[in-house]
Structures are given as C-alpha cells and as structure tokens.
Amino acid sequence: MTLVSALCAGMLAGCGGGSSASTGSTGDSGSNASGDAYNVTVIVKHTDGHFNKVIAGARAYGSEHDNVNVEIQSPTSATSYDEQVNMIETALGNPGIDAVVIAPQQSTSTATLVDTATKPVVALDTDFTSDKKACFVGTGNEDAALNGGKAVAEACKALGKDKPTAVIIAGVQGDETHEARLRGYRDAIEAAGGQVLEVQYTDTMPDKAAAAMEAVIQKYPNGVDAVLSIADDMALAAAKVIKDSGNTNYADTVLCGFDGNQSAIEAVMDGSLTIDIAQMGYDMGYKAVEAAVTVLEGGSVESFIDSGSKVIDSSNIDEYVSDMKSKGLWE
C-alpha cells in the first residue's frame, strides 16, 4: 500500500465531515523497549492536497522512530474555528500528550490558548507569536510568493506585456500565511512595473474564488495579464471560470497557484495553469514532528525552520513529479 493510500484510509472518518478527524497513532510507531514513547499530536487547519502531504510527512517521522506516536487531528473546514480551538485546548490539557504541533486557523486566538502551555508547542504552516512556542516550521511564504510572482512577471513579459496588470485571489483576511503570500505577490508585480488591480478574499473556498473570477471578468472584459492565487484550489476554480467564459481576451492570462498539489501540477502539464508554487509539505510535517521531539529530548531548535518551496513550470515539472512519486504522494 502506498503512503497516500494508507493516509486516505486513516482519514476516512474525518473526510465525512465529523467534528474531529483524529486518526490515531501513526504507522508502526509504538513504545520503545523501556515503554517511554513520545506522544505528539499534530493539529492541522483542514485536510486538502497540501495538508495531506504535511500529514504524510508527520506520519513518516513516526513510522521511522519506534519511540514516537503521532496523532493527527483536523477540523471540518479551514474556517471551523471553534472546532480547532476545542482540539487545541483538549490536546494541551491532556497529560498523555507530550507535545503539540499546531497549524493555526487563527494566530491570535492560538497564541492565547498556548499561553499557559506546560508542554512543547510547535507552530506549523502558519506562525503565531508566543513565548511558549518552541519554533515555527513552514514555508517562507512571502519569499515563496515573491519568487512565484517574479516568474509570473517574466511570463507576462515573454508575451509582450512589460507592465502586467494582475488580480490576486486571496484567502482568509488576517491569516498570517495568506497575508504574507499576498505581500509577496504584490511586491513582485509592482517591482516589475505592473499593477495589482484587485485583491479578492475568498476564505480559501473554490466557489467564492469562482465568483470572484466571474466578477473580475465582468469588470475587466478586455482581460488582465495575470491572476495569482494564494492556494491551488482557488487557482483551478479561476481557470475553469476563464475557460467557461469564452472570453478570448483572457486566453493568454498567466495563471499562478500556490501549494504544489497534484491537481494543480497536472493543470500546469496541460496548460490550464502557467505556474505553481510548490510547498514542500511532506518535509514540513516531518520537520515539525522532528523539532517537537528534539525539544522533548532537551535539545535546541532554530526559531524558524524553513521547509522550502519551489516555483514549478514547464521547465522543471518532470523533476517535481518524480520527487512526489518517490514519496508515494502521486496517484
């Protein structure tokens, strides 16, 4: 069974929309000979292509270390705030859990929740400010978006659009990760002499992204040069709206996604998307659990551990797919 197959099997209960998608202990992890196993709970924002890779990496660390148990929990959606708050409170208060890794839906409320934590806490994917936080493991989102935005500007210039006009399809307003990506995109377009015409917040919901793209086409019927999305699902929704609109003025619009999910990479392959910014989600999950265990063992960790990113286009897509296949993350 591939890692993805095992992951999907373990997550069936959560995918059904229950209040908690806890998947229990990971792989073959269990107590070591002395019975001293570390129990690490990883609480993600929700389950999608990116977080599936994060979860796979976290599970892989547990599978490789007999003295580490990894439990995964996921709220029903990216905006199920109360659900995640309850998960965090429960994990922090459970004496059987040794460390908690959190991808916060709301950074401010998460910081408040961990204020009295008596166990190691690691921020995952999205940072938050707290003296109780051991470190943050994630993508350098602003730099990643900046690099992707530069690639978008270059693609526009290759089409003769030296001062590209752009629309940014954002996610949840106030989310630190999404705002960092927005800043990176904006800086890249403006540095290239271009202009960001619109920023549309969509709560990371594809249907809202589709509605936003429809509004953009209505407002700018003569086309825009680039559409940059802060997540793959929104980019794919925008691409479908453009295709279905039949507006030929959008035929050569440069489309950029962010995550590196299989569906988006396949869209780059077939030309539906131009560029995708791939997060190294597997490495992110692996390194987050690794950092938690290091702290439990009395070691020190850097305050920020960058799990990396890569701008994917037609020039390097085969290399990326090969890497995903080698980790069992390509169906």
Rank of each mutant, 00 (worst) to 15 (best):
D48G: 00
N52E: 11
E89F: 09
G18Q: 10
S22V: 14
A58Y: 03
M87E: 06
G30L: 05
A9K: 14
A58G: 07
I88E: 10
N67I: 06
T47P: 02
K53Y: 09
Q73L: 09
G35R: 03
T41P: 01
G93F: 07
F51K: 05
S34D: 15
G49L: 00
Y61Q: 06
G16N: 14
V42I: 06
S22C: 15
T90N: 12
Y81T: 09
R59T: 08
S25I: 13
A60V: 11
I88H: 05
N39A: 03
S77M: 04
T76L: 04
T41M: 10
H46P: 02
A56R: 09
I72W: 04
G96M: 08
E71D: 13
L12A: 15
Y81Q: 11
Y61V: 04
G96I: 08
V85P: 05
A78Y: 00
V85W: 04
L7V: 01
P75A: 02
E64C: 07
E71A: 12
T41A: 10
C15R: 15
I72M: 08
M87I: 02
L7I: 00
M11P: 05
V70K: 01
G93M: 06
G18A: 10
F51A: 04
L92C: 02
T41L: 10
T76Q: 06
L92A: 02
S74E: 14
G18D: 10
I55L: 11
N69K: 13
E83F: 05
T76S: 08
G24A: 06
H50R: 01
Y61M: 08
A6P: 12
H65I: 09
G24Y: 03
S22W: 14
L92N: 02
V85D: 08
G49E: 02
G18T: 12
S77A: 09
N86G: 07
P95T: 10
V42D: 03
T90G: 05
H65T: 09
D48M: 00
D28V: 11
I43K: 00
A60P: 04
L92G: 01
L12F: 12
S29V: 01
F51D: 03
S29M: 02
T79S: 14
S25M: 13
E64G: 09
P75F: 02
D36H: 11
C15K: 15
S80N: 03
V42S: 04
A58F: 04
N39C: 05
T41V: 10
G62Y: 03
D66R: 12
E64M: 12
G27F: 07
I55F: 11
E83L: 09
T79I: 15
M11I: 06
C15V: 15
P95S: 11
N67K: 08
G14W: 03
C8F: 15
S20E: 15
E64H: 05
H46M: 06
S77K: 07
S34N: 14
M87Q: 09
N32M: 00
I55H: 11
